[in-house]
Design a protein around this nucleic acid. Sequence first.
DNA 1: TATGAATGAGCTTTCATTCAT
DNA 2: TATGAATGAAAGCTCATTCAT
Lengths: 206, 206, 206, 206
Amino acid sequence: MAARTRSASRRGAEPSDTRQALLRSALALFERLGYDATSVQQIVDDAHRTKGAFYHHWESKEALLRDLHEEFIDDQLERARAVIGRDLPPEEMLRELVTEVLMEPLSVYKSEITVFLHEHRFLSDAAFAEIRRKRDEFENIVVSVIKRGMDTGAFKKIGTPQLVASGVIGMCAWSYTWLEAKGKLSPREIGETYGDILVKGLAVSE
Amino acid sequence: MAARTRSASRRGAEPSDTRQALLRSALALFERLGYDATSVQQIVDDAHRTKGAFYHHWESKEALLRDLHEEFIDDQLERARAVIGRDLPPEEMLRELVTEVLMEPLSVYKSEITVFLHEHRFLSDAAFAEIRRKRDEFENIVVSVIKRGMDTGAFKKIGTPQLVASGVIGMCAWSYTWLEAKGKLSPREIGETYGDILVKGLAVSE
Amino acid sequence: MAARTRSASRRGAEPSDTRQALLRSALALFERLGYDATSVQQIVDDAHRTKGAFYHHWESKEALLRDLHEEFIDDQLERARAVIGRDLPPEEMLRELVTEVLMEPLSVYKSEITVFLHEHRFLSDAAFAEIRRKRDEFENIVVSVIKRGMDTGAFKKIGTPQLVASGVIGMCAWSYTWLEAKGKLSPREIGETYGDILVKGLAVSE
Amino acid sequence: MAARTRSASRRGAEPSDTRQALLRSALALFERLGYDATSVQQIVDDAHRTKGAFYHHWESKEALLRDLHEEFIDDQLERARAVIGRDLPPEEMLRELVTEVLMEPLSVYKSEITVFLHEHRFLSDAAFAEIRRKRDEFENIVVSVIKRGMDTGAFKKIGTPQLVASGVIGMCAWSYTWLEAKGKLSPREIGETYGDILVKGLAVSE
DNA sequence: TATGAATGAGCTTTCATTCAT
DNA sequence: TATGAATGAAAGCTCATTCAT
């Protein structure tokens, strides 16, 4: 029993191999079919693993979803913090938030983001409190940039900072719904256009 | 025994009473739990009806979802057609699309729209072809207004009309995700703010 | 209410029109799909009638099956009685039973017979006692002809009359399973061949 | 509580114990009630198993039916091949086909054959192609024996080999409908009688 | 005679999860 | 670490039948 060393299992794969394979399969299936419509069986079949392996790595299907979210939201939050750490006027900061934080990650995390946005509902669970906290922190960063712009006179006071921030986020986030379909443009290029419109739309008229 | 007229028993209720009751219950549950996570049993329990009655009115759960979508998309398309039928400059037309077509219906159809946007996935089915056609027609209307604005020199040529239209729609559509949560503002008020930002953001600088 | 005369209903059709239409549809569907797999809804749809009409004419789906059986078994029994009423030697009588009673009706009642043979199971019910009685009477007629042949020395005593009769009936009845598939031959022609084989097979050797 | 080893709980039963138990129960129920009229619930109750276990072993109720068929048709085909592999004149070969291939297996596979013959309808599915192929091969073996007899002058040319073969098969197969009911005779004894009648009926008169 | 909405039990199947090994 | 048979609750859906009209 003790003799059953690592190399005997799954052709000498690294221990976290299985974990990664399952995560990848789950992500692809969630994106295509939705979290609810994807069964654990499908995930393990797709990853050429077994249910036992799945439940060895996660206590539930939901726990895997949580892990999936965590990865990208950490990245996004980090990017956001980096942007507001820079010494930039609000217009430029908004532009960078749009391109580098809101749009750019879509290049890498398109699937995660699609799943995240689609599976909102499951985030109400207590287990997702941490993720919700991070998402809120991210939103607050956007709000704070708008607010600073309004306070310093760079942006017109059209609506509350919260309302404007929601518009900014929505404009960008929405693109996950059509990105692949119509896509000749990279997320960054889209972000630049949207940044232009938003900055100009918010600027104080001269 | 004598009191058993028209109330204890569901038989002989008003025509399509049952249909309406089921639609209402389904809508509320889909919004709260999602289409997939809502069972037919939950729907009929909520409506105080039976599964038999459900399947008497719809051939499947999906058919009900289709009916739910149809109602509001027809309304939205009609509103959009009305707006482009008016004799207005592109700026005003865009403003009206935003307030009257994109945001205003959220007052009435918040639930339907939430369901509609969340349940995209199920629209891939052939049975939803008509709904998809209408949604495309609607999108094309927004695109055409942006395009006219660019062609007539009212709007700057920032990005393609398609890209800009997607941004406009996204900015508004996204609001369904937070509308209730933060909501002191009416959809119309939100639309006015967003309209201002967008029109100003697209305007040719003077 | 009393004024709702016959011609107002179903385009002036004869009263038994509906009954006949339902019987025809049920027969065709039972043959194709089986009794169990055919729903009352399918029957009434196929006949362009309604469930109400169905249950007006029959108290149950099984009652209709009974009616379906009755029609053809009466015909078959009558034919059998006619044959044994003739003044013929056993060989000829057997030949006529095979061609005129066992095979010939397949030309007319192919569907009924297929259903009858396939839906045996449902005949165990008390409601089918009469049909079972008639089928037994029919079998006894075949047995009696074989027996007379053996008693008079026309047929060899190979096995009991019951056993031989079962073989005769089986040889013919089985043909319903392939009749349509391979069918260039009429039931009568098949019966003539089988009659030849059986009569020769049973004859006392010279 | 201590007694709960291997008997109160079904887990850890002998390998494929469950599979066999379910097959046996299904077979008995299908024979008695018919495939359609037998529910998966009845099967698992009868086998003291659960539905989950059922669907762990078969993907559908139909898949189980297929397994049930396969077992006996393989046996029958093997017997038929063995018979035509022997060096025998057509008369003897026909006699052996009747006794050893058509009738004898009824001793063992009465239930399977009853189900098989009754549930023809379900064999139209693509999944049953293999079974259909085997059944056809079996029929062709019978046809070929008749044909050889006719070609070599052992049998009279009464009807086509196909027609005669169908009669032979029918005469025997039909016996499943009454075998139990009247049964003092073994399938082999029945086969000997039928073999006599058929061989004599087909023989060229001397 | 006939309608058709409604019933309610039952259907086949799915699935997240458990657990002896 | 991992297996995979088994669980049991619940899913979507069907259907013979009833009944107020």
